[in-house]
């Protein structure tokens, strides 16, 4: 067994502590120690985006962040997207637009798309495509994913106005 370090964080709004070895990725710590298996491992090298999370509001691949680096920081994962049993509009639109097939990349896409819409509520198609270029999907050809994000942006702008 390797020596572990205690890490205190906020995860999806809750105070969470975990202990992990110094060389363990935040992705592994979240999956194996915090139990958030919605954080997916596709590559372990920051190339596929399946493990995307928000760390202090910044979109990162949690597989290339160390668990100990999360000390004192705030983490948001796909598990924190829905509030009080209501799906986030992105989640609902992904279902409604058939924007997922196998679904392994879906949590990462949702986290990345939310990061985009948080900073740009009215992205054009090209901005959406570039914002999601760090997330690999092998099933959909991205068509329905882009459409789901477009629909969400439209829904959220409408809601923001009302």
């Amino acid at each position: 067994m390797s020596k572990s370090t205690l890490v205190s964080t906020t995860v999806n709004g809750d105070a969470v502590e975990f202990a992990c070895p110094a060389d363990e990725s935040l992705m592994t710590a979240l999956r194996d120690r915090v139990g958030l298996t919605g954080v997916k491992e596709g590559c372990g090298t920051g190339d596929c985006g399946a493990c995307s999370i928000s760390l202090d509001g910044r979109l990162v691949c949690s597989c290339i962040v160390l668990g100990v680096e999360a000390e004192g920081r705030s983490i948001e994962t796909v598990e924190g997207l829905s509030q009080n049993g209501v799906l986030h509009p992105l989640q609902q639109n992904f279902i409604d637009h058939a924007a997922l097939q196998c679904g392994i990349c879906t949590p990462g896409f949702l986290v990345a798309a939310k990061a985009l819409l948080d900073r740009n509520p009215n992205p054009d198609e090209s901005e959406i495509r570039y914002a999601l270029a760090g997330n690999l999907c092998r099933c959909t050809g991205y068509d329905k994913i882009v459409r789901a994000v477009q629909a969400t942006a439209k829904d959220m702008r409408k809601k923001g106005r009302s």
Binding site: R31, T37, K40, E41, E79, L100, T106
Partner: peptide, 21 residues
């Protein structure tokens, strides 16, 4: 016709359990 998939909610909320889960 077009219906939503029954595994959709599990897959958009991170609940769906894959090989490593």
């Amino acid at each position: 016709t077009r219906f939503n998939r029954p595994d959709g909610i599990d897959k958009v909320t991170g609940k769906a359990r894959y090989g490593a889960d």
